[in-house]
C-alpha cells in the first residue's frame, strides 16, 4: 500500500493530537469509582465511620457536595476533595450513586436503644426522614441502614453546632436529650 505525503501529513497531525483529544469527558462511573477506596465498591461502605453512598438521594448528594465545597458543612478530607469536581460532575456522581443498590451493613446495635429511638423518631423525625429513614423528602438523606459510628459522628456535629441544621430541623430537635440522639442513631442503624 502506498500513501501520499500530503495524506500522511494529515494522518500524522491527527495522531499527534493524541488520544486525549479523542476521549470522552470522564463518565459518571469513572468519577464515582474513584470514591470507592473510602466509600466501598459502588458506594457500599464496609467502614463504620464512612457513609454508604449506594442508593443515596440525588438531591441530598448534590447538596452535601456543594456544602463540602463551600465549606458550609464541616469536613476533614471531603472539603478538599469536593473542590476537585465541577457542578456537572457532582450531578453525574449523584446520579451514579442514586442508581446503586443499597447494601445493608451489619452494625451492632443496642435493642433497648433501638426501641427508644423508634419513639423519638416518631415524635421528632418522621415527617422529613420518611419510612423509618428509608425514604427522603427534598434535601434530607436516606439515613436508614447507615453505620452506627457514622450516624453518631453526624449527630455529634449537629448537636455541637458544627454542622448547621435547617430551621425546621433545629425546631424539631430542640427538646431532644443526648440520650435521645444516641437512641435515634441506633434506630436508624438497625433499619435494613
Amino acid at each position: 500500500m502506498r500513501i501520499k505525503w500530503s495524506e500522511m501529513a494529515l494522518a500524522l497531525s491527527a495522531l499527534v493530537v493524541s488520544t486525549v483529544a479523542y476521549a470522552m469527558p470522564p463518565s459518571a462511573a469513572m468519577l464515582s469509582n474513584a470514591c470507592a477506596g473510602c466509600h466501598g465498591t459502588h458506594g457500599a461502605s464496609a467502614g463504620p465511620s464512612m457513609p454508604s453512598l449506594a442508593g443515596q438521594s440525588k438531591v441530598f448528594f448534590i447538596d452535601a457536595m456543594k456544602k463540602f465545597k463551600s465549606g458550609e458543612r464541616p469536613a476533614t478530607v471531603m472539603g478538599r476533595l469536593a473542590k476537585g469536581y465541577s457542578d456537572e460532575q457532582i450531578v453525574a456522581m449523584a446520579d451514579f450513586f442514586a442508581k446503586q443498590k443499597p447494601q445493608a451493613q451489619n452494625t451492632a446495635v443496642d435493642p433497648v436503644l433501638v426501641a427508644k429511638g423508634k419513639t423519638v423518631y416518631d415524635n421528632a423525625c418522621k415527617r422529613c426522614h420518611l419510612e423509618n429513614g428509608k425514604e427522603f423528602e427534598e434535601d434530607t438523606p436516606i439515613v436508614a441502614g447507615q453505620w452506627l459510628t457514622y450516624l453518631q459522628i453526624q449527630m455529634n456535629e449537629f448537636q455541637s453546632g458544627a454542622r448547621k441544621m435547617s430551621d425546621k430541623k433545629a425546631e424539631k430537635v430542640k427538646p431532644l436529650t443526648d440520650a435521645d440522639w444516641e437512641a435515634v442513631a441506633h434506630f436508624y442503624a438497625s433499619q435494613k
Binding site: 470507592a36 477506596g37 473510602c38 466509600h39 466501598g40 465498591t41 461502605s45 464496609a46 467502614g47 463504620p48 465511620s49 464512612m50 476533614t76 478530607v77 459510628t149 459522628i153
Partner: peptide
C-alpha cells in the same frame, strides 16, 4: 485530628474489602 484517625480506620477497612471481595 482525632476524627481523621477514626476515618483512617474505616479507609483501610473499605479499601482492603474492596480488594478482597
Amino acid at each position: 485530628s482525632e476524627l481523621e484517625a477514626v476515618y483512617a480506620q474505616s479507609w483501610v477497612k473499605n479499601i482492603l474489602t474492596e480488594m478482597s471481595s
